[in-house]
């Protein structure tokens, strides 16, 4: 069964692709971490790379950033090899953990990044401002909270003014308030048209912040589309209606219905094309009290990433 919903729409954009992964495979010894990923992302998309731990998200991110090399296949960022895109500041990232020195102040850390990218002093203040940490610039990194350190990583990532920003499990270990603040900063930033890819295993984050969700399982993409499409792919939707004499009808003959359940005068019809089912009910039957529900993303996630899903 194919679960790809909209990868064709993603490839039809004009101009340079932000990300072009072509048949990317990554093996570590006998372990295959990424098993043939094709992924095209257009400029301006906000994409969630969603999957359980060990699905290959971080390995994929590492290859996007040129931190590791694909065993086979190619990765291109705006048409460039990832390492060049990194050096030119077209792609940057907020990594999961680590990567900070305790003896630097917040401002010095960002200033060092500016020095390395050949950016002026004014860019430092701007990055601190946008990451919302301007007022703690003089604080030693070792004295910052986890959320503040994450926003410092965000400020460093903003410094080269990248076209593509990658966030690898950016809110791991943050409390709810810290997560919300962090995402508000990211969302504000993305309104300027920056392409954002974030890896996460928090479903609600993918649902709330991404235009497109790429679901990864065991090194493969198992679903790709909007949050609504991904939910529908896994479980379809259920149309519930009240129809007098429901038990007399063979509902499985209705176009689009995959399973049907009758409870007295109430009928529950499940299928991927809920629109077709609803249209049938409203035009060909006396159905009323129509209700269409999709399963939530968590159900989709579990269904698509379960061991027997393939």
């Amino acid at each position: 069964m194919t679960l790809t919903a909209s990868s064709d729409t993603a490839a039809t954009g004009t101009g340079q692709l932000a990300v072009d992964l072509d048949g990317v495979v990554k093996r570590f010894g006998t372990v295959t971490a990424v098993d043939g990923i094709d992924l095209r992302i257009r400029p301006g998309e906000v994409v969630a790379l969603l999957g359980p731990n060990g699905a290959g998200k971080t390995t994929t991110v590492d290859m996007l950033l040129g931190l590791s090399k694909p065993t086979s296949g190619t990765a291109k960022i705006y048409g460039l090899p990832p390492q060049d895109a990194v050096a030119l500041g077209r792609i940057s990232a907020v990594m999961q953990t680590g990567g900070l020195l305790k003896d630097y102040t917040v401002e010095e850390t960002v200033r060092l990044t500016a020095v390395l990218f050949g950016k002026p002093r004014s860019a430092v203040a701007a990055a601190l401002e946008r990451a919302g940490i301007a007022e703690i610039g003089g604080r030693l990194v070792g004295k910052c909270s986890g959320g503040q350190q994450q926003r410092l990583r965000f400020a460093m990532a903003l410094l080269p003014d990248p076209d593509l920003l990658i966030l690898d499990e950016p809110t791991t270990g943050m409390d709810v308030g810290g997560r919300r603040e962090f995402w508000d900063a990211i969302r504000q930033d993305a309104e300027g048209g920056r392409t954002v890819i974030f890896a996460t295993h928090y479903l609600e984050e993918a649902d709330a912040y991404a235009d497109r969700i790429v679901l990864v399982r065991r090194g493969k993409i198992v679903a790709d589309g909007t949050a609504a499409e991904v939910k529908a792919l896994a479980a379809g939707r259920t149309v519930r209606a009240t129809v007098a004499g429901a038990s007399l009808v063979d509902w499985s003959q209705v176009p689009g219905v995959e399973s049907a359940e009758v409870r007295g005068d109430t009928v529950l019809l499940s299928g991927r094309d809920s629109d077709a089912i609803a249209r049938h009910l409203l035009t060909r039957t006396e159905a009323r009290d129509l209700e269409i529900t999709s399963r939530n993303l968590e159900d989709a996630f579990l269904a698509l990433t379960a061991e027997d899903a393939a």
Binding site: L67, V86, A87, A93, G99, L100, L101, L116, F117
Partner: peptide, 17 residues
């Protein structure tokens, strides 16, 4: 050594250095 332990070397690989 300290910088590798802190993951700073990895961070620096995301710069032109």
């Amino acid at each position: 050594s300290i910088e590798r332990a802190a993951g700073w070397s990895r961070q620096l690989r995301l710069t032109p250095l």
